[in-house]
Design a protein around this nucleic acid. Structure first.
Lengths: 192, 192
DNA sequence: CGCGACGTTGATTTGCCTCAACGATTGTGG
DNA sequence: CCACAATCGTTGAGGCAAATCAACGTCGCG
């Protein structure tokens, strides 16, 4: 389980054997069955989570009861409510397993300790968050300036393998359209 | 000019006098007149920019010629195209001064040198980018799950002072609606 | 088998856009 | 300092993309 995390970290920073040992003690393994929750709206998020197996979604339920998906995560991705985690406030998100999952988690004290013992982890998380920020900004632009058709094509281009793993109405909730409308979009493209 | 930057940095990390001197040599001052550009679409962004005076916008022009505003920045904010800056690729954004501006800029070599000499800057930028990421994620959720009315109210609540400084059609471009439609929204709320 | 979850299809409605016209304000050159 | 243009906001009429509501088909599974 830890080898994927180490491989992931090594893409951005170099690690000695001692540092690898330090890391594996900082993260705790956790399993989650399909439909179980990692986090409920209203709870404070105590961990940041790295996915070694499976698939999850982070979603938001507004006051009309509509679900909107902030993020999917599969192997080699991070998931969590960073705002809740960092500010120690109740989360606005639910995080749910869409498949049986294997996860590695670190809590706030563990992370602060890691930053102290291994300052290069500051660099690592800066890079990870930079990438997340860039992706999020692209999504803002694309949700404003593109039609649902274009956003759907972007989605399957960007996550070619995810579409087979998750129900269509959740793709719709990610794209910000109704399931009915996504169905019509797919039908239109299927004719070509 | 530099005092605002130092004050800004000191909110997140502590600095000695020597470190302050190091910082002031790393950043270069720049002035920009209203309607001048900090960056054009297609150029590679060579600097990250801190605003000490004035107001700017970062916007994207899609293939239909529509402008969409990714970000406004006023005093005490950062602005730039982080993706272009970090990956050394042509920017998809324009950045334009909406008022006469005073700026402090750092380029890529300067930043890497700063990270080496002053590792706590890794921490600082991690925190800054974290906040930017959280704000961006909120915007994704809000652009999907809220009506234009609600997004407008969010905007004036979040940036109460900015609305007086920028033309209304640019607020519209930020919210993702037409100027005409924003005018109708405002009219509706003015009646109450 | 029968039930619930999921996807599809059709009819209707609505939020927002488009286009066009028209004041109000700002700015600028003669 | 005025005249004219440009910029910006407002209003109306009509149109379209996507939502809503309702019905129905299909599949997996207890």
């Amino acid at each position: 389980m830890y080898s994927l995390l180490i491989k992931h970290l090594s893409k951005h920073i170099s690690l000695t054997n001692e540092e690898i040992i330090l890391l594996t003690t900082a993260f705790r393994a956790k399993r989650l069955k399909k439909k179980e929750f990692l986090l409920h709206q209203g709870e404070t998020s105590r961990q940041e989570t790295f996915v070694t197996k499976g698939c999850l979604r982070a979603y938001y339920v507004n006051d009309k009861g509509e679900e909107h998906i902030a993020q999917f995560a599969v192997e080699d991705w991070w998931i969590g409510d960073m705002y809740s985690f960092l500010t120690d406030t109740p989360s606005t998100l639910y995080i749910e397993a869409l498949e049986d999952c294997e996860l590695l988690q670190i809590d706030r004290p563990g992370l602060e300790e890691l930053y102290l013992k291994l300052p290069k982890m500051e660099r690592f998380f800066r890079i990870i968050i930079q990438n997340a920020f860039i992706a999020s900004q692209n999504r803002v632009i694309s949700s404003m300036s593109k039609t649902a058709d274009e956003r759907y094509l972007d989605f399957i281009r960007k996550y070619p393998n995810i579409e087979q793993r998750i129900p269509q109405y959740q793709v719709a909730a990610y794209l910000g359209v109704t399931p009915e409308f996504l169905s019509r979009i797919r039908k239109k493209f299927a004719r070509n």
